[in-house]
Design a protein around this nucleic acid. Structure first.
Length: 221
DNA sequence: GACCAGGCACATC
DNA sequence: GATGTGCATGGT
């Protein structure tokens, strides 16, 4: 797919929805927590969990690190999968304190590829979570692929059916020269159009990308 | 009451 | 390497 078409899609989404101001979160640490908590989970439920952590004064690496996974679990209950996610949070915190003295800002000094690889070694942090943390907590130029991205682009015939995570990611990386601000906004806009029109049961009425197949054909010439 | 949500690890084939 | 399954709450 061409850079031109990807730009056209971006413009349409931006025109329709406006800037999304992602990631919602008041600190790097909060963004990281949100990235783990939102795994396969509605963001409104994540907000409840984060509000719980804030209410209990556990929204700092030190405070959260002092708790066991069993103690964290009830605090994040509204985000679902609370036993899994409390373990995942605990694993991240143990790693952060063992290797970086609990200093989130030290992670920002790592080269992008190193940070990503390190995050991926942690159980519970897969490609999307690692990339979300890199891009939204540390302004690293990595495009985040999620279920909506594959669904939106798949539905509109813009990617091959069997396309994997890295295939789709490469599409954006090769087209936009690792532009952090664009990556930030583009991914957020894809989530927005996905929520509006491209759920598992699609609602194509009024979708800003409706006539893209036509665009795709004309672009060939 | 079914369906869905900003995944991931693990088992099995 | 592809596919299936468990994990769990809260909104529509």
């Amino acid at each position: 797919m061409s850079r031109h078409l990807l730009t056209e899609i971006y413009q349409r989404l931006l025109d329709r929805y406006g800037p999304q101001h992602w990631w919602p979160g008041q600190s790097r640490f909060e963004i990281i927590l949100g990235a783990i908590l939102t795994q396969n989970t509605n963001w409104t439920n994540v907000e409840k969990a984060i509000a719980n952590l804030r209410k209990n004064d556990c929204l700092s690496p030190e405070k959260l690190h002092a708790l066991t996974a069993v103690q964290i679990a009830p605090l994040i209950r509204p985000a679902g999968y609370f036993n899994q996610k409390s373990t995942r949070l605990k694993l991240f915190l143990d790693w952060l304190f063992d290797n970086y003295d609990g200093e989130v800002d030290e992670l920002a000094e790592l080269p992008t590829s190193t940070l990503r690889e390190q995050l991926l070694t942690l159980k519970g942090i897969g490609p999307e979570t690692a990339d979300s943390i890199c891009l939204y907590a540390f302004d690293k130029p990595i495009f985040v692929i999620d279920a909506y991205t594959a669904r939106v682009f798949g539905r509109h015939g813009l990617i091959e059916p069997g396309c994997g995570y890295s295939d789709i990611q490469e599409l954006f990386h090769s087209s936009f020269d690792h532009n952090v601000q664009l990556f930030n906004e583009y991914h957020a806009l894809i989530v927005q159009v996905g929520k509006q029109h491209c759920k598992r049961r699609p609602n194509c009425q009024g979708c800003p990308l409706e006539d893209l197949p036509h665009q795709l054909e004309t672009e060939m010439f």
